[in-house]
Design a protein around this nucleic acid. Structure first.
Lengths: 204, 204
DNA sequence: AATATTGGGCACCGCCACTATCCAATCAGG
DNA sequence: CCTGATTGGATAGTGGCGGTGCCCAATATT
């Protein structure tokens, strides 16, 4: 198929498909002439993935390129792919390294072992600092409850990773890491809404 | 204090403080003359809150304005404040209303009652659609596990809301709704990292 | 009185995700 | 084979966002 059909089948404007090609989010089609290129089903699939990462996944084009590079690298081990995805995700800039002590303490209480330079660790520390700044420092019990719930989920995420093909596993990890975040946040809000209705509205 | 001291104490550039004043994120100081205004501790506190919402909270200026308006409205009930915060949070545009059936099914299995037009419900449906588009449709068991973990958290969030002052409760709800999201996401990533290390790296 | 600072307003900047236009090459229809 | 439409590729432009720089008259400080 040509670029116009690729665009039509995915609902993405042709100019945008060209943009993704330029940005390296989408592999080039097979050139059949100086002004013709052929695309196939893998391009359709990839384009849908790109749109999912950029839209609901909330990734920037630059971030998506890095994440997809990990998906494409042939020999990437699953643990490395997860690390690559985590590293690529919008993290905390190198500005003012936050206080990692409380974040470490939460991890220690659960017995989690993570890399000392884990971006998620810095993100957690930064988020805790923001709560302090907002005048609502979280208690250890609250953090532990959050950590327990997160632990359940993270454990399950990893247990679900398929063992068949490495390619498949890496793709699974990246997609689930990124696209289940909005699912989790939406479910939390729904749970809050339900609980709030019961506590403050008598079921509304 | 004057604007320069407000800026100095919070580490925010003066021009940016002026911008927040223009945008209505920060209430105007008390005018003491045509070119003087006085700010107090409430402004320092509010400015820190604004920075926390805009930075780690990930809100846009427009969203933060809406959320803060709910905080400021005097008679807002807690349930309304939560709703206002949820409605203001970056949701799904009115484009292509997603299929709500699967989202409803998850909620029904947990017995949650939420508004039919809940933005979180639409967000959930959109996120599920994105997973489908990415070729990794989530199974019901996965969704149920996520919902269970989210339920634990949301329940606790609501139970923690202080009952003393309404103002205090509303502020608590807004801050916790917004700023615990990055905490939850960071903890999930850390749990994944820990679990991945144990499963795929033998503890690395 | 001289100097420095302030509040307020407006214009401007850099970044980002597209989007529009142009061009030569090429394909399809007649 | 000729003609007109379409394509790939490149370049430039757009609109929104979150600030940022600059200027001015008015005011405080010295």
């Amino acid at each position: 198929m040509q670029i116009s059909e690729l665009a039509r089948r995915t609902g993405v404007p042709v100019a945008t498909v060209k943009y993704y090609l330029r940005e390296g989010l989408l592999p080039a089609g097979e050139l059949t002439g100086a002004t013709r290129a052929r695309y196939d089903e893998t391009h359709v699939e990839r384009l849908r993935l790109v749109r999912a990462l950029l839209g609901p996944g909330g990734l920037s084009v630059a971030t998506a390129r890095t994440v997809l590079a990990a998906v494409d690298a042939p020999g990437t081990a699953v643990h490395e792919a997860l690390g690559a995805a985590h590293r690529a995700l919008p993290g905390v800039g190198p500005g003012d390294p936050p206080d990692l002590d409380r974040a470490h303490a939460v991890l220690d209480r659960r017995g989690w072992r993570v890399a000392a330079d884990s971006p998620a660790l810095r993100a957690l520390a930064a988020a805790l600092a923001a709560l302090d700044a907002a005048g609502q420092p979280p208690g250890d019990d609250l953090l532990d409850r959050y950590a327990e719930a997160a632990g359940r989920i993270g454990e399950q995420d990893v247990a679900d990773v398929p063992t068949g093909s490495l390619q498949e596993a890496v793709r699974f990890v990246v997609v689930h890491t990124v696209l289940l975040e909005p699912v989790l946040l939406a479910l939390r809000r729904l749970a809050q809404e339900d609980a709030s209705g019961r506590r403050f509205c008598g079921g509304c």
